[in-house]
Deep mutational scan, measured.
Amino acid sequence: MLDDRARMEAAKKEKVEQILAEFQLQEEDLKKVMRRMQKEMDRGLRLETHEEASVKMLPTYVRSTPEGSEVGDFLSLDLGGTNFRVMLVKVGEGEEGQWSVKTKHQMYSIPEDAMTGTAEMLFDYISECISDFLDKHQMKHKKLPLGFTFSFPVRHEDIDKGILLNWTKGFKASGAEGNNVVGLLRDAIKRRGDFEMDVVAMVNDTVATMISCYYEDHQCEVGMIVGTGCNACYMEEMQNVELVEGDEGRMCVNTEWGAFGDSGELDEFLLEYDRLVDESSANPGQQLYEKLIGGKYMGELVRLVLLRLVDENLLFHGEASEQLRTRGAFETRFVSQVESDTGDRKQIYNILSTLGLRPSTTDCDIVRRACESVSTRAAHMCSAGLAGVINRMRESRSEDVMRITVGVDGSVYKLHPSFKERFHASVRRLTPSCEITFIESEEGSGRGAALVSAVACKKACMLGQ
Rank of each mutant, 00 (worst) to 15 (best):
L79S: 07
V335P: 02
H380I: 11
S151M: 11
N254S: 04
A10L: 15
V452Y: 05
L165N: 09
L309V: 03
D187R: 04
F133R: 00
V55Q: 01
I211W: 00
S280M: 11
M37A: 01
F195R: 03
H105S: 10
S375F: 03
A387P: 00
F419H: 03
K161L: 15
G162Y: 12
P111K: 13
E70I: 02
H317F: 14
V367T: 09
R327S: 13
S353D: 08
S109V: 11
F171C: 11
M381F: 11
S445W: 13
V389C: 06
T362S: 04
Q337W: 08
R447N: 10
C230M: 07
F419A: 03
E52V: 14
M238C: 02
V226A: 04
L134W: 02
K102C: 06
K39C: 03
G264L: 08
S418V: 11
K190Y: 15
A384W: 05
T82D: 07
K12D: 15
A11W: 15
V182R: 13
G318W: 09
L58R: 06
Y273W: 13
S453T: 12
S411H: 11
M139P: 03
S340I: 09
V226P: 02
G223R: 00
H380D: 14
H218F: 05
M57E: 02
M87Y: 04
Q287A: 15
C252R: 00
L144H: 09
S69H: 14
E242F: 01
F419R: 04
I225P: 00
E319A: 08
G410D: 08
V226R: 01
T362Q: 04
R422C: 13
F23Y: 07
K12W: 08
T354S: 06
H50L: 03
K161G: 10
E52Y: 09
L292H: 10
N313C: 05
R369G: 02
T342H: 04
P145G: 02
E9Q: 02
I404M: 03
V408D: 01
D409Q: 10
D274R: 00
Y289H: 15
S360Y: 01
V412P: 12
E435H: 08
I211Y: 00
R368N: 06
E14H: 10
N83C: 10
D198Q: 02
K136N: 07
L314S: 10
K291E: 08
A11R: 14
L144M: 12
